[in-house]
């Protein structure tokens, strides 16, 4: 059950509706909530952009459509979250997407990893979808009505994304020798970035945001605004190794990377991606498209 929502939250399903509600002064995120939304929005935006890079390059037409659909869903989440985040600072989704530098992007590093081959993309999407799935399910119970409404919509979509990744994990893991080898390589390449996914939110003011305990049952006491990541980590540890072994693959043992995406530290992959994404907007600052 979604906690009691005010009018602005119940209409806050599209970025446009959120923007309207902000314009009408009905929705304003506090600074910590805005930073939280910005991090989640960047996760979704960066991954959506990566998936968009696949379009016209996919192994079959159906995958051009499927990867594009997932990318579009994520772009929708990103737009809602960035729009909401911007309400704290009077900035638009586009100000945030196009006019921040690399070190101001708060996405966790998994999402910026290059597409690689199809198996790399599936590995990245699998880890991302398990993370999003747990995150948005919990966030539906946030006491922040806008975040809860965004999460409620996202949950349904992420469910499909997860299914898509799991189906391909099985096909590639159990398909041919080559696909098995490539899938294993993809998992190994993305695994270092799993650790960071469940590290506590950083950059939020101390005590500024109460966490939502994941185990709160419907109708129970609601803890707060932000999802507690610790229980998500246990869920990931329970689900993902089983999925990997079911697909005849080996759970990677490579160590986790240092991370730091939430503090604006990124791998070398993000800079060139942003350069491309932002090039036209930055050539014409302040205009309408």
């Amino acid at each position: 059950m979604i906690p009691t929502t005010n009018r602005s939250a119940s209409t806050a399903l599209t970025p446009e509706a959120i923007a309207e509600s902000i314009a009408a002064d009905e929705t304003v995120a506090s600074e910590p909530v805005a930073l939280y939304a910005l991090g989640l929005g960047d996760d979704a935006l960066v991954l959506a952009h990566r998936l968009g890079e696949w379009i016209t390059h996919a192994p079959e037409l159906e995958e051009d459509v499927a990867l594009g659909n997932i990318g579009l869903d994520l772009l929708g989440h990103a737009r809602s979250l960035l729009t909401y985040a911007g309400s704290a600072w009077g900035t638009s989704e586009d100000d945030l997407a196009y006019f921040r530098g690399e070190s101001e992007f708060r996405n966790r590093q998994l999402f910026e990893q290059p597409n690689g081959d199809f198996a790399h993309t599936i590995a990245r999407q699998l880890f991302a979808s398990v993370y999003f799935d747990g995150l948005y399910r919990a966030l539906r119970r946030s006491t922040d009505p806008t975040l809860a409404a965004i999460a409620a919509k996202a949950t349904k979509e992420v469910d499909y994304h997860l299914d898509h990744s799991v189906q391909w994990l099985l096909r590639l893991g159990l398909g041919t020798e080559e696909s098995h080898r490539r899938m294993q390589r993809g998992l190994d390449a993305m695994w270092p970035f799993v650790g960071e996914l469940f590290r506590a939110e950083t950059g939020l003011p101390e005590g500024g945001v109460a966490h939502v305990p994941l185990d709160v049952t419907d109708g129970g006491t609601l803890g707060g605004v932000v999802v507690d990541l610790e229980p998500l980590r246990s869920a990931f540890d329970e689900i993902v190794p089983r999925l990997i072994t079911d697909a005849g693959l080996t759970v990677p043992t490579v160590p986790f990377a240092r991370g730091g995406g939430r503090e604006g530290r990124h791998t070398e992959a993000l800079g060139p991606m942003l350069a491309e994404m932002q090039v036209l907007a930055r050539a014409h600052p302040g205009v309408t498209w």
């Binding site: 390059h57 996919a58 079959e60 995958e63 199809f118 099985l170 041919t176 696909s179």
Partner: peptide, 13 residues
């Protein structure tokens, strides 16, 4: 580039 993906899907099916 996607040949191995389609082969895998066929083999799995």
């Amino acid at each position: 580039n996607g040949a191995w993906v389609r082969e895998a899907a066929r083999a799995y099916a």
